[in-house]
């Protein structure tokens, strides 16, 4: 049975609802056209480094727990231009997707290890440990958890010295539109985005993504719209 979560940080009791949960409700700050900016920390033991990052939401299909967009890394060393990738996201709505990734080389232990880095996840932990959180009802929860997987480089070749083999664990705050994420690549000893750098095993804080909703030069929030036929 699903667990309905109040907007507070404490999950409510198990509800009597049907196991199939409704899609997550629309959050205007996560709608198509919305832009975010911030940094991705790519520091290593040898040096501190952070790339400036722009993200734009291009598609959102809550019924299928789907989100997609582009990510632009601005000051990538050795790259002549900003590097743009297209990513697709799985929204953890406990209907289409649970907290357990079940692919991309991530074990449930990897999942729990990453999700617990988000403080907003802690009320959900016990339920997620049981079954990936498939009984949770997150429709009224003010945070949206996602996995973003980059699919292709938009403006550079695959020989650009960067890898998109991993994916991000992402937490979006519906209240202020901030995004936090952790990059994870099970095939890389360091979960590092730089293919050319070999590092001893280190933890994901080096790969933290921090973004804020951007007003793009305006003194307020603006919302465009497209609708597919």
């Amino acid at each position: 049975m699903p667990v309905r979560l109040a907007e507070s940080s404490i999950p409510s009791d198990v509800s009597d609802d049907e196991p199939e949960n409704a899609p997550l409700p629309t959050c205007t700050l996560l709608s198509v056209g919305q832009a975010f900016f911030g940094t991705q920390n790519v520091s290593s033991l040898q040096k501190d480094e952070a790339w400036r990052v722009n993200v734009r939401i291009q598609g959102c299909d809550l019924d299928h727990g789907y989100l997609c967009g582009t990510m632009e890394a601005l000051n990538v060393p050795m790259a002549d231009t900003p590097v743009i990738t297209f990513w697709e996201g799985e929204i953890v709505d406990t209907n289409n997707f649970t907290f357990f990734t079940g692919k991309w080389g991530a074990t449930s232990e990897d999942d729990i290890k990453h999700w617990t880095k988000f403080s907003s996840f802690s009320p959900l932990l016990s339920q997620v440990e049981k079954d990936g959180g498939k009984m949770l009802d997150l429709t009224n929860y003010p945070y949206i958890f996602m996995r973003w997987k980059e699919q292709y480089f938009v403006n550079v070749g695959t020989d650009c010295g960067l890898t998109i083999a991993g994916f991000y664990y992402v937490c979006f705050s519906c209240g202020d539109g901030s995004i936090n994420g952790y990059y994870y690549d099970p095939n890389s000893s360091s979960s590092n985005r730089l293919m050319i750098v070999e590092l001893p095993c280190c933890d994901s804080p080096f790969q933290k993504l921090e973004l804020k909703s951007t007003k793009e030069g305006r003194s307020g929030f603006s919302f465009g719209l497209y609708e597919l036929k």
Partner: peptide, 10 residues
């Protein structure tokens, strides 16, 4: 077919 945002984006 053009409902594919992935391909629209490409």
């Amino acid at each position: 077919v053009a409902r594919s945002v992935k391909n629209l984006s490409a």
